[in-house]
């Protein structure tokens, strides 16, 4: 699965993308897995209320299931326009 990071999430993680093998059933489980892996992920995911998530390029939420999902992205609230 590809895990993408944008804006300050990308800066805290230190890279734009990870390719990971995971058994996580939901986005929240994936976050917990990453958080336990390394301090920089813990720093990026410290406040989930400040984060948004997209699953296969659709805006989603932290309880979304990950079965057959190819791409998950984490980012702060969007500031387009």
């Amino acid at each position: 699965m590809d895990v993408l990071y944008f804006a300050w999430v990308r800066e805290r993680v230190g890279r734009p993308k990870d390719r990971i093998e995971t058994g996580a059933a939901t986005v929240r489980e994936l976050v917990n897995e990453l958080t336990q892996k390394e301090e920089r992920y813990a720093a990026a995911f410290a406040d989930l209320d400040a984060l948004r998530v997209a699953v296969d390029q659709e805006l989603s939420d932290f309880d979304a299931p990950l079965e057959n999902v190819r791409e998950v992205a984490f980012f702060p609230p969007m500031t387009g326009g």
Partner: peptide
């Protein structure tokens, strides 16, 4: 279109000033 582009299209703005750079908060 403008209201939704602002908060639902995945863009993020960073301002670079003389004092450094910072992400624009929603």
């Amino acid at each position: 279109l403008m209201d939704f582009l602002k908060s639902r299209a995945p863009f993020w703005k960073k301002e670079v000033t003389g004092d450094g750079a910072g992400w624009v908060a929603a």
